[in-house]
Simulated assay, not measured.
Amino acid sequence: MQVAKNSVITIDYHVTDTDGEVVDEGREPIVYLHGGYDDIFPKIEEALQGKAVGESVQVKLQPDEAFGDYDASLVQIEPRKDFPKELQVGMQFEGGPEDGGEDDFVIYRVTDIADDKVVLDGNHPLAGMALIFTCTVTAVRAASAEEVEHGHVHHPDDEDACH
């Protein structure tokens, strides 16, 4: 069976930056619904179209094809007193504009702690980076009608995912 619309694809993968440094070693395979469901970056989906189990592809993604350009406006400096006592670089907090709606919330990472200030960054850690995504198709199966209707893969051990 080949990779086609409305098929469930399993790939082993790893991601490097353009200098060859590993940014995601792909410890767990990616399982996604193929065919424009936004389960994987479109350029990767396009490269996998028509491939069979055992075939590999390598795709270079520019920032706008992956995690977006770096947005300096998503960096904020906040008073240290507004955070829990136990605070470390790398911790994440959800936040957003006071006048924003539910969809405006962003996950902010703590990137620096200095004296009475905390630096928060709402950019994805890989924003602004060109990436090289290398993968091998390890399984292809037809999606169920329910998976197609819901627009994502249903995992057998995750029965309550859509309920």
Rank of each mutant, 00 (worst) to 15 (best):
Q62E: 15
D116M: 06
P156D: 15
M1S: 14
D157V: 01
A145R: 04
D121I: 08
N123S: 05
D158S: 07
G151N: 08
E25S: 13
A66R: 14
G36S: 09
E78N: 04
I40F: 09
G95I: 09
I11M: 08
N123I: 07
T10G: 13
I107P: 00
F133S: 11
M1R: 06
H155K: 11
L48S: 10
M91Y: 13
F105M: 12
Q62R: 15
H154N: 10
E21W: 06
A66Q: 10
G122M: 04
V8S: 09
D38W: 13
G36Q: 06
A143T: 06
L33K: 00
I30F: 12
E149S: 13
S56A: 07
L74E: 06
A142H: 01
I9Q: 04
E159G: 08
P79T: 00
Q58G: 15
H124T: 00
T136D: 00
P79H: 03
V89G: 03
K81Q: 02
Q49N: 11
V59F: 15
N123W: 03
A130Q: 13
V15G: 00
E94F: 06
D121Y: 05
P29R: 04
Y70F: 15
I30V: 14
T134K: 12
Q2H: 13
E45M: 11
K117S: 07
E46V: 06
K85I: 03
F105L: 10
E46P: 02
V3E: 15
I40G: 00
I44M: 03
F67D: 14
F83Q: 00
E98Y: 08
T134S: 15
D39N: 15
T136H: 05
D24N: 14
G151F: 10
E94L: 09
Q92K: 12
F83A: 03
G50S: 10
T134G: 07
D104G: 07
I132Y: 13
G100N: 08
H154W: 10
I113M: 11
R27V: 15
G151P: 14
L126I: 04
V57S: 02
G54T: 00
Q88I: 04
G54A: 06
I40Q: 08
D39Y: 10
D17I: 15
P156V: 11
D115A: 14
E86N: 06
K85N: 07
D104S: 13
L87C: 05
H154Q: 10
V148R: 07
Q76M: 12
K60N: 09
V118Q: 06
F83G: 03
T111N: 02
K85A: 13
D64I: 02
N6Q: 05
G100H: 04
